[in-house]
Write a protein that binds this DNA or RNA. Structure first.
Lengths: 203, 203
DNA sequence: ACCTTTTTAATACAGTTGTATTATTTTATT
DNA sequence: AATAAAATAATACAACTGTATTAAAAAGGT
């Protein structure tokens, strides 16, 4: 009873924070990160600056949270797919790998926002630390996927996994970047196809 | 005589513009692109705002020029190597490919600045157009390098070059990004090694 | 020496920024 | 109904921003 109420309260607060973070995304995409001022974000979220301050006491808090939300959304998406329910399968692994490419509008949006944060990370210690943490997580996840591919005999057992994870992660990252920057040339279909061709070379 | 004087005049003007652009780089790296205001750049270049305005009438002009300077520096570097003097050679090709990775401080610096501009390109039409133009140029250059590798029998003739150029370019771009963001994990040595391993798989 | 051009600088303007403080409204509790 | 807490809002402050205008200094030409 009391526990449920507390959880609902927290969820309401958290839902508003998430709504504000998504308004931040919208501003970043439309006007660039440098124009994601607290006023512009507040306007986008239909709040006043004072009101927004109730949820994020500093702009830095807001940006960090907005960045973390990208990873949270990815994790939720993967979780919702119920992958690996019956043990590892090739198709599930591919599905995880595909989450690293902007193959739909949602993912593309997130990656564009992420790119903006990457840029800011170079000069902002807090953003950088968070960025690095999330990249490390992705690296581990990809390494695990590669190990599973080898386990499933979908990749050769003699591969140097240290090299291959750098190669795969680099490929995914680079193609994503190109797909964002030159969407007419590097279409989702093309980069998805190249990913599959790449995986074929691992057999 | 008169021609030499005009050229010297232009070179002097151009040299000052380049100096200002490099001050812009310095500010971007230290404080982020969003803090590369005309005042901060002017201060970095030891000029006043009015003085800076003599060389770049708008901030946008300054940023575009600063972005173009990255490519100009790369081209100059490649030019200075006198590659392909005696026709194509494998080592020369590798040298060009290595220019796509942050293997030294200069290149790393340029790529960090480039990352900042990429981010800004998402919301700024002028920057985006210039970004896309430069990326297209790089794509073509890489495609040419791949074709030369095939010609030199350093890559199989049956490769699908459309796939391989996307793969190679993606790999180079992605590893560069990782080297910038996680320099302790993705060291220049590692990414250089992975590039070579990748090229081995093309044989 | 004087005049012109180039380079550098100072100042102003209107607008924006993150943060702080105070106020008001809404919701929840007693 | 009264009180307290939560949510929203308005206002202020000091500093910063790109651009415009005017001024001054330095360099070049006659």
């Amino acid at each position: 009873m009391c526990y449920d109420w507390v959880m609902e309260k927290i969820n309401k607060f958290e839902a508003q924070r998430e709504k504000i973070a998504q308004a931040t995304w919208a501003v970043i995409l439309r006007d660039g990160l440098e124009n994601a001022s607290v006023r512009n974000v507040a306007q986008e979220a239909n709040l006043s600056v004072g009101s927004l301050r109730h949820y994020f006491s500093t702009q830095s808090d807001l940006l960090i949270y907005s960045m973390e939300l990208i990873q949270k959304k990815t994790d939720e998406r993967i979780e919702a797919m119920r992958l690996f329910g019956n043990g590892p399968s090739t198709e599930d692994i591919l599905e995880v790998l595909r989450q690293f490419l902007p193959l739909d509008a949602e993912r593309k949006l997130e990656m564009e926002v992420w790119l903006s944060f990457s840029s800011k990370a170079l000069a902002d210690e807090a953003i950088r630390a968070k960025c690095q943490e999330l990249l490390e997580n992705s690296y581990q996840r990809l390494r695990t996927m590669l190990e599973l591919l080898i386990f499933l005999k979908e990749a050769r057992g003699d591969l140097d996994i240290d090299v291959e994870v750098v190669r795969l992660y680099g490929l995914l990252e680079g193609m994503s970047y190109h797909c964002i920057m030159l969407p007419d040339k590097f279409t989702p279909e093309i980069i998805n196809h190249v990913l599959h061709e790449h995986l074929q070379t691992l057999k």
